[in-house]
Computed example of a mutant assay.
Amino acid sequence: MPTTLKTGRGIYTIASAAPLARAAGSVVLTLSLERGDGIEKVALRCRIAIGLMRSADSDSAEKLIERIAPWLEREFEQTREAALKSIRAERHLLEISFDETNPGPF
Score class of each variant (00 low, 15 high):
G38I: 03
T3Y: 09
M53V: 05
L64G: 02
G25N: 07
E75M: 06
T101A: 11
T79P: 04
D59K: 00
N102W: 03
A89C: 00
C46Q: 12
S26I: 01
T30P: 11
E90N: 13
R67I: 06
D59G: 14
E75C: 02
A17W: 02
K41G: 09
D99H: 04
R45K: 14
A69E: 10
G10H: 13
F106W: 15
K85F: 11
P103R: 01
F98S: 14
F98T: 12
L52C: 05
W71V: 11
R80V: 07
E77M: 07
L84G: 03
E62T: 14
F76Y: 15
R80Y: 15
E75I: 01
L31T: 13
A24V: 13
W71I: 11
Y12G: 12
V27S: 05
V42I: 14
A89R: 10
G8P: 10
R88D: 12
R9K: 09
D57S: 05
S86Y: 04
P103D: 01
I39W: 02
E73H: 03
T7V: 15
R47F: 02
L44Q: 10
S16W: 01
A15C: 09
L5V: 09
L64E: 01
G8I: 07
R74V: 09
L94G: 09
D57Y: 02
M53T: 05
W71Q: 04
A69W: 12
R80G: 02
A61P: 05
F76A: 11
A23L: 04
K85L: 12
A49M: 10
T13R: 15
E73S: 08
R91F: 09
A24L: 09
R45C: 13
K63Q: 06
L94C: 10
K6C: 08
L64P: 02
R9T: 06
T7Y: 12
E95N: 02
L20I: 08
L93V: 01
